[in-house]
Design a protein around this nucleic acid. Structure first.
Lengths: 350, 350
DNA sequence: AAGTGCTGGGACAAAATTAGTCCCGTTAGT
DNA sequence: ACTAACGGGACTAATTTTGTCCCAGCACTT
């Protein structure tokens, strides 16, 4: 018909045309409602802090949400109502459309050449509480891809820990086995180690798990000796039969600092141009594995042989790392990230 | 599932829950856009007057609409853009839903026991320009119900005149014949007489018409004599073959005043409790025809025999009259009215 | 060819709304 | 019994919105 102009098709696009302020308004309110949902009974001040807004604005919005019956105020705080939950669920696609998350998801899926990109709204650094959302989203993906009696390998890190906390029994198929994708992580916080997280996954979903505690940075001889142990061999066998891997992606520098690497090791990484880290491998900008930590763990070939891979990482600072990691092909991967990382990735790609 | 609470289903309902101010906002903006569309190139001040808002508000809204590219400002005034028209069209159902017009349409259709009720937003008395909308709506209905070679009888009145103006050639089927539902209306404004309006309909749609000019208030003998005239007989024959009637509904008192009725006639009407008037018949509250003007015109039985009847009337003051008229069964009628009349009708029915 | 009545846009003070910052009585958890 | 956090009230400062002009420019009319 008409040549140049792209026709408006959907109602929501027309709404946005005639009421542009709705986009921001919806975004704000939705975040409030979502926060109240997540933080359970929460006070006005705590809410304001979590969303980085003034107390008064928090009050204004919560007043409105209460009047609309979307939240319920009590002495112990505000919590979401039944209709609030419905609204949250129904409006999600619209929020994603208007905030541009939908298009970002599509663009990144294409540019990273992976199966799917899922973005949760927010910045994991600015608003740590949205890690819960990342977790919920990842847990949802897991429940979709995992079938009965499958083996799920998980890695460590704070993000993965959050996901483990978000898993509920009803979500997941039965008879799964969770295993740590790698041995110990040295002096790291116990709660962030793969073994612990595998246990949490299993516990929260009512499934079994297998652990393997090993010291990190083994010498060549010690490594060769230990992989002959029956317990270890058994674990390596499990890696071969792993169906789903769910892992974080780390920034190489941050990772090296967290592990008590020596200065030589750090400068070694820098020399090789390491940008990202995932299950013990360090990758450079072009996606080449430039180094790996010598410990028992799932191998890259084993990962790539898996049915599904779920990668989870968020925050602007992770953007470069995520890009680097996906330079090596990982077609069957589903990435769960936040909008801050997504924006930065698209910015870096331009 | 849950017993009591009615579940939110649609996205638009959820939007309204979380952003209640959107309803009014959309309504306002939509009216602006609609007005600009109707009034063609129009200035800020004229627009403000038409919508009964301050000059500043008119300016604020038009500024926004212009920024959004929905309207185009030029030295001769503002007019709607292509995308503006699209938005107008796409958003109509939403406006109707949020302003409660949709539910009013359903309620009235049921309570009046007629085929369909179509409501245009506004008050025909406060905003005369929306008569154009009434007209457009009625013309749209006509184009849907009228088939080729059919005979359309029209009555008089300012509303019908507005409809006639809104008819365009492309709208209507070909080879229609428009006829006046009744002879002259005495001393009334020429432009509001059925004969003139039939001619306008025909002219604007590129069809034929037949007129019949007769004096009103004929004596019994004169009446009997005149209906023997070939020209008149021919017209009466047309009434028998009429397919579609499109008529206004008048308030009895106003009608009697407009026609130069004598005081006796007026008090006579009051005595009989006449409330409404349509094609020469006066009806009381219960829908009984209490009087009719003695002139050549379509008879009630002939009307009821028609395939489709389109009734058009708007304004709060017409509410009682419309209710009265539809008390006599008129199942195949489609009523086109405005929201002011609709509200009042529902109010009176409670 | 000058006049007149529109147009959109600029400017500015008054009015209304919103945001920031306290306080307070109450209540749940300790 | 105590404490910390809750929602809600109150009041001022800041911001936005609104009402009301004026203005230069363009299109009709005279």
């Amino acid at each position: 018909m008409r040549g140049e102009r792209k026709d408006i098709i959907t109602v929501s696009e027309a709404q946005l045309k005639i009421m542009p302020e709705m986009s921001e308004l919806l975004h704000t309110r939705y975040r409030f409602l979502q926060m109240i949902d997540m933080l359970g009974p929460v006070g006005r001040r705590g809410l304001a802090e979590n969303l980085s807004v003034g107390e008064r604005e928090a009050r204004k919005e919560t007043d409105l949400l209460r009047e609309q019956g979307l939240i319920i105020a009590s002495h112990s705080g505000m919590r979401i109502s039944e209709s609030g939950k419905e609204v949250l669920e129904i409006l999600k696609p619209l929020v994603y459309e208007w905030s541009g998350i939908s298009v970002m998801e599509k663009q990144l899926t294409q540019k990273l050449c992976i199966q799917r990109v899922l973005i949760v709204d927010g910045d994991i650094n600015e608003t740590p509480s949205i890690k819960i959302l990342l977790g919920l989203e990842a847990a949802k993906v897991l429940s979709k891809v995992a079938k009965e009696k499958e083996i799920i390998a998980v890695t460590g890190g704070s993000t993965l820990a959050a996901i483990a906390d978000s898993v509920t029994p009803s979500d997941q198929p039965n008879n799964l086995t969770f295993i740590a994708a790698r041995g110990g992580m040295g002096v790291d916080d116990m709660r962030l180690q793969a073994n612990t997280i595998a246990a949490t996954f299993a516990h929260n979903s009512g499934n079994a798990y297998r652990t393997l505690y090993l010291p990190e940075h083994l010498s060549e001889t010690a490594y060769k000796a230990i992989i002959e142990e029956p317990m270890v061999k058994e674990m390596i066998d499990l890696y071969d039969r792993t169906d789903v891997v769910i892992h974080g992606i780390g920034s190489a520098i941050e990772m090296a600092s967290r592990r008590n690497s020596t200065e030589t090791e750090k400068s070694n990484l820098l020399e090789h141009g390491a940008v990202s880290e995932a299950f013990g491998y360090y990758f450079d900008e072009s996606g080449k594995a430039v180094q790996r930590i010598q410990t028992v763990g799932i191998q890259r070939e084993q990962v790539n042989r898996c049915k599904s891979i779920i990668a989870v990482a968020g925050g602007k600072n992770k953007a470069a790392a995520i890009l680097s990691y996906f330079k090596q092909g990982a077609n069957q991967t589903i990435l769960v990230t936040d909008s801050a990382a997504a924006k930065e990735m698209l910015h870096l790609l331009k």
